[in-house]
Design a protein around this nucleic acid. Structure first.
Length: 315
DNA sequence: AATAGCTACAACCGCCACACG
DNA sequence: GCGTGTGGCGGTTGTAGCTAT
């Protein structure tokens, strides 16, 4: 016997919500809070299923939702995070608190995917065989420090970025937790949340960590290494962890890495991770400036492939 | 003016993970 | 440990509005 539907389909209204329905839903939630969705249709008399009520609230009626055009900054973040995380719209949305996952998903499908596709097709004939669109776009963003991060301070903290980007350590921890879950056998999760778990695993105190993505990578690495039994962590996994730092182009400064590790027991793998980070920085330093590509990607009116044909000149 | 095609986005569907009895 | 209910997520669809012919 299959699972019964979330609600009785008979007599359930579908399609666009009317303003009257919205008012009923909003006033109910204002009174009772956004919980126990199953009881919402019954208690409000709405001829909608609980799921529909929840979606209407989370995607449209919830306070603090920003509507309208995406800014170039938001667009850049979506492109970058999508390249990094894939179609994890909820995770991406956690970095844009004013946008819903549905909004971001729609925007990606209707605007950005197209741009990337055109970009990719224009690029393909001219790209070296080991280059990918992601790497290219990623480098482009990194080189431009496009998320308002100064390129001069090697110990940058995320609170120097705009208010919406990676604005909380919780967001970062959530992201890392997701990675931890998918890349290693499931372990007991913390009673106090993933952030606490990270602190426990790394042995580093919250106030000494700050919001540095570099630090976060190291935390993640150490937690992973601890889970796997010390230094049993592959270069590939390390690279994967370190790729988090592409999020905001935190500078790869060896001295800051050393200071981060100060106070915790330094192992051979610690040295390995620092070495890898150093190498990564050197590679990144050698990348040619690609800012015009970023401009093109972020340009609402872009779309002329002709301009892209200029690409080989810079390679 | 009519209509075919396209675009944007709200809403729906199905699946999954987790909590709970 | 198992079955069930619920909420969350990502993919897809439906449709209103716009544009081109």
């Amino acid at each position: 016997m299959g699972r019964p539907p979330c609600c009785d389909k008979v007599g359930i209204k579908k399609g666009p919500w009317t303003p009257e329905e919205d008012i009923i839903l909003v006033s109910y939630i204002q009174e009772h809070g956004p919980a126990n969705w199953r009881s919402v249709p019954t208690n409000t008399g709405l001829l909608r299923c609980s799921k529909s009520c929840r979606l209407r609230w989370t995607n449209y009626l919830r306070p603090g939702i920003k509507r309208g055009n995406f800014t170039p900054h938001e667009e850049g973040m979506i492109i970058h995070l999508q390249a990094l995380l894939g179609n994890k719209w909820a995770a991406i949305a956690s970095y844009l608190p004013q946008r819903t996952d549905n909004d971001i998903k729609n925007y990606w499908n209707t605007h950005l995917k197209k741009k990337i596709k055109i970009f990719q097709s224009a690029l393909e004939p001219h790209m070296a065989s080991d280059s990918t669109t992601y790497q290219f776009v990623s480098k482009s963003f990194n080189d431009k420090r496009s998320f308002d991060i100064s390129s001069h301070d090697s110990t940058l903290r995320l609170n120097q970025t705009s208010s919406t980007y990676a604005s909380s350590t919780e967001n970062i921890s959530r992201l890392l937790e997701g990675w931890m879950r998918s890349s290693s056998p499931r372990t007991n999760t913390s009673l106090n949340g993933p952030h606490d778990e990270l602190h426990r695993n790394t042995g580093l105190e919250n106030n000494s960590i700050g919001n540095s993505m570099t630090t976060t990578s190291l935390q993640c690495y150490k937690a992973k290494a601890d889970q796997d039994g010390g230094d049993l962590i592959s270069s590939e996994e390390l690279e994967s962890i370190l790729s988090f730092d592409n999020l905001n182009s935190i500078a790869w400064d060896k001295s800051s890495c050393d200071s981060i590790l100060k106070g915790s027991q330094t192992t051979a793998t610690d040295e390995k991770v620092i070495h890898l980070m150093h190498e990564k920085k050197q590679r990144s330093d050698n990348n040619p400036p690609l800012s015009f590509l970023e401009k093109w990607l972020l340009d609402e009116t872009a779309g002329q492939v002709d301009e892209m044909m200029e690409l080989p000149q810079i390679f």
